[in-house]
Structure formats: structure tokens, C-alpha cells
Computed example of a mutant assay.
Amino acid sequence: MTRAIRQYGRRAPSQRRAISFSRIFTGKVPAHPAAADYLTGLNGGWEMLGNDVAGDCVAVTWANMRRLVTAICGAENYPGQDAVWQIYRTQNPGFDPNGTAETNGPGSTHDQGMDIQTLLEYLVKVGGPDGVKALGFAKVDPTNTEEVKAAIAIFGTLWTGIVVQEANQDDFAAGRPWDYHRSSPDEGGHSVLTGGYGPPGAGPLGGDERMETWAEETSFTDAYWRRKVEEAWVVIWPEHLQHPDFLAGVDMAAFAAAYTAITDRPFPVVIPPAPVPTPPPAPTPSPDSRLVEALGLMQAWGRDNHVTGA
């Protein structure tokens, strides 16, 4: 059977300094549901966006993340192929999708993939072809079970850097979750959108992590996540600042301070106040409790005024 062509393209992590997600909690790891899945609300409609011919998976993840975040927070906007090629050329300036492998097209020396953190820094400084700048980003510890789930629950998505094994292509073609295969060789680094996680009790990360790649939705087993996920990032977009669940879960003042410490620049927007929780209403006393309370007050008054019964 001829295997479908699917490309990779994520370069090895750069390991530069970045804000840690754990620094921007509003206390302990934020409360989060036992399961969440933001991908299903979009009812499919994902696009390949060139990742069948070139190593533009990191640029594709940008487009997919913009689609998901805008859909969660308001009106969906899915950047198209031209925008993805623009993003890809920020790290491959000579690349031409109409070129050849012998010149500057797919498969040539100008098709060298991308580094996720370098693109995130670009999106903060310059913004994407859709005219939107990222406000910041933070590194999530992929080995921390609760941090991963909280990040997905609050942000709606994780930008995830993985290593694909040869056998994962078969997993994908068969519609199976991507598993860790002990004897299968690694084929390349890849960037995907993770947008959900499963119920507790199915492994160290609480169940399969839901992800989108190559225009389809699938998932990871916990064994794969433990062994083949190399990096995970949350990105703060302007749309997040209009979303009360996000503001309640992230200490934006702490994030702004960390942003300034790393970049030597002030945070680019005014931080809206976190929503104030509405206190629960006081319980209405039952008639019996009001009667008991009244009798107690009468008895206390009688004792204080030396009144005795007949």
C-alpha cells in the first residue's frame, strides 16, 4: 500500500529563555474540568495548508490556533494558504511554493521547517498576516499532568511540538490514537494543535490528548505523550482578554511582570480586571428556624431582665 504524503518540519526546540506557565497561575494550578474538548465544536473543516508538500507544520499550527481561538472567543477566522506561506517565509525567506526541489520549492534547501519559539517571538513583535499580534506566550511543562490539562482548559489549545515515529503514520491512516511504538524509528519533528483531554483514570495524563494535524482530528495515548512530546506552549491572543474564564484562570499582572522582565518592554495592552466572583446568596431561614431564633431571643431577654414564667 502506498503511504499518503505527509510532511513534518518542526526544528528542534531552541531552548531560549521563556515565561513558565506555572508563574502565571492565580494561585495553585487552576481548577479545571475532568475532561475538555474544544475541537469538536468546530465540526471538522480543517485544511492541510501545504503540509502535504512542504515542512510548514509550524505555520499551519499558527493558522489552526487562530481558527480555534477566534471560534472560542467570538467570530471564527481561519487564515488561508497564502497567509501560511507568508508565515513560513519568516524563517525560510527564499522559499517559493511554486518552485521545485532543485531550486527553491518544496523539498529544496529553502524548505527547512521552523522553530516554534522563534515564530512565537515574531508573532509578538510583528504579528501575523491576519493583522493580529500575540500578546505573549508561556512554556508549559508537558510532564506535569495537571498543568497540561489546566492550560488546555483555560486557553482552549496547546501549541505542541512532538517527534513522529514511523508507526504513527500507520496509526493516523488507520484512525487510531498515536501510540508509542518501542521499536519504531523516529521520522521527524512535527507541530500540532492540541485542543482537548480525556476523563481521569485512563493514564498519567488522564486520557488521550485530542489533537489536530494534517487536516484531521485524532489523539495521543498517554504513553506517546510521555515519551514523544518535546515542547508545549500557550499563547495569549487579544481575543483571550475578552473571555471571562481565561481572565479568572490566569494572573495577568504576573504575566505582564514576567513579560517585562524577559523582554525589557512593557506589556503591550491594558490588562482588564479579573471578573469578581458573585457571592452566593444567603440561605433563606425556614419558618421553624426563625421561630427557634425568636424564642431564643425572648428567653435571653427574659434572663437579662429577671423575668420568670407564671
Results as ranks from 00 to 15, higher is better:
202 A>D: 12
87 I>A: 13
310 A>K: 10
261 A>R: 03
24 I>V: 07
93 P>Y: 00
227 R>I: 10
220 F>M: 09
266 P>W: 02
97 P>D: 02
20 S>F: 03
116 I>W: 00
38 Y>F: 15
83 A>K: 07
285 P>Q: 07
115 D>M: 11
218 T>H: 08
264 D>F: 10
308 T>G: 13
137 F>E: 00
204 P>S: 11
103 T>H: 10
58 V>W: 04
83 A>Q: 08
203 G>I: 15
42 L>Q: 15
287 P>G: 05
120 L>R: 05
98 N>W: 05
168 N>V: 05
138 A>Y: 01
24 I>K: 04
68 L>S: 12
76 E>Y: 10
39 L>T: 15
138 A>S: 02
147 E>G: 10
37 D>T: 14
257 A>P: 01
272 P>R: 05
187 E>R: 11
178 W>G: 08
255 F>T: 00
254 A>C: 03
126 V>R: 13
81 Q>D: 07
59 A>R: 08
75 A>H: 12
160 T>E: 02
233 W>P: 03
177 P>R: 07
85 W>H: 14
81 Q>T: 13
132 V>R: 01
298 M>P: 02
22 S>G: 12
62 W>H: 12
138 A>M: 04
266 P>R: 06
39 L>C: 14
291 L>E: 11
16 R>W: 06
163 V>H: 03
51 N>M: 07
122 Y>Q: 15
275 P>A: 05
131 G>T: 12
143 T>A: 03
75 A>Q: 13
54 A>D: 00
103 T>A: 14
49 L>C: 04
245 D>L: 03
161 G>E: 03
122 Y>H: 14
37 D>Q: 09
115 D>P: 04
85 W>K: 12
114 M>I: 04
291 L>H: 08
303 R>A: 13
243 H>L: 02
39 L>G: 10
10 R>L: 10
43 N>Y: 14
216 E>Q: 15
176 R>A: 06
197 Y>L: 10
235 V>M: 00
164 V>D: 02
223 A>G: 14
188 G>F: 08
219 S>W: 03
184 S>D: 06
285 P>T: 01
302 G>Y: 12
122 Y>T: 14
174 A>R: 09
208 D>E: 06
